[in-house]
Design a protein around this nucleic acid. Sequence first.
DNA 1: TCGTTTACGAAACCGGAGTTGCGTAATTGG
DNA 2: CCAATTACGCAACTCCGGTTTCGTAAACGA
Lengths: 199, 199
Amino acid sequence: MAPRGRPRDTQVDERVLRIAAALIFERGYAGLSVDEVAEQAGVAKTTLYRRWPTKDHLAVAVVARLQADDEITDTGDIRTDLVDYLEKIAAGLNRMRAAGGNRGPSAGAVGELVGATARHEDIGRLGREQYARRNAIALALIERARLRGELRADLDAEALFDQLAGALYYRVMITGAPIDRSYAERLVSCALEGNMTCR
Amino acid sequence: MAPRGRPRDTQVDERVLRIAAALIFERGYAGLSVDEVAEQAGVAKTTLYRRWPTKDHLAVAVVARLQADDEITDTGDIRTDLVDYLEKIAAGLNRMRAAGGNRGPSAGAVGELVGATARHEDIGRLGREQYARRNAIALALIERARLRGELRADLDAEALFDQLAGALYYRVMITGAPIDRSYAERLVSCALEGNMTCR
DNA sequence: TCGTTTACGAAACCGGAGTTGCGTAATTGG
DNA sequence: CCAATTACGCAACTCCGGTTTCGTAAACGA
């Protein structure tokens, strides 16, 4: 079970990720130079490319650490639970947006990350897995609320969550508008109460 | 009012955009080489960079032509109007997604475009202007429906449209799932009817 | 006709991502 | 101890986006 050849220097990963994170936050994605990371980490470029096959992969690894593990609180009130959950997603997005200088209403690193997702099949898979995890959590939350009668019996949970999460991403990436708790509350209200007059 | 020096060769723009479009659709964004475009168009690279300051700008110009001008139909039934409108947006997204090889459930060119939006302030502005136009159309549509009593008087039009459009983008970019008319119908139903039991 | 301005082409050049080849170091298995 | 295997550093290299320089061409106004 022990790996065959010379073992990797585990300190390298930690050091490189720290330095890369510092560079991204200081100068943005474009200002992140692989050569410079290697130099500052006191390591050869080849050593770096052995771990992360492209600069995109390295950046994704950096940003992935910013993502809090989406914990969930089930208070029994679906409205506050959804708002809480959206706020956690928003916090992750805002942290990512902070990287990259964030001059003006730019998407910052979030947009670059989406680009990386589009460029590399494996990164795309990672993103989709993360989405699936998050989706499963939200669906379970919604399902419990449905079972206890808080939500319609015939609701479309997938569409509901796509709308909530989608609006956050849309705002950050296309609109560039800020996302905070009050916006999350507006979204949840709009989604729960509907928009027809008939009520 | 006449420009001062030698006028630009207007045929160049057309020819370059055609060739670049062909290359993007054939090999994807990464397979688009500026040198190759210049060569195939029988034009110097400098001539190309005079018109589009970066490869991103060129690609955006190519994709922008794929966007149908969002025309709108106001049938008086907000549900079908919204579905129609979403379907038009979805068609544009699907056209963009078709570019870039589209191996697997990848976002294709859409993701790259978002990346370009994040990399260049001016492209971001363009995107935001387009969003604003689209948003204005949708808001007017919603407002008319509200005034004739189809929708709640106290609705949050911005949040509503963010949810609808956002879900489309979210699907294309993160999920990679297909978007068609039936999905648009699900979204509109979900948004209009709400998800609480109380109704 | 002449000076000014802008467009074009050609070529050399720069910088950064990513690769390759080679010599050497560390570890395992026999 | 020895062979196989993997990691590492170093240096040169390719590829491509983007820039610079320079000579020439096409328009304008005086």
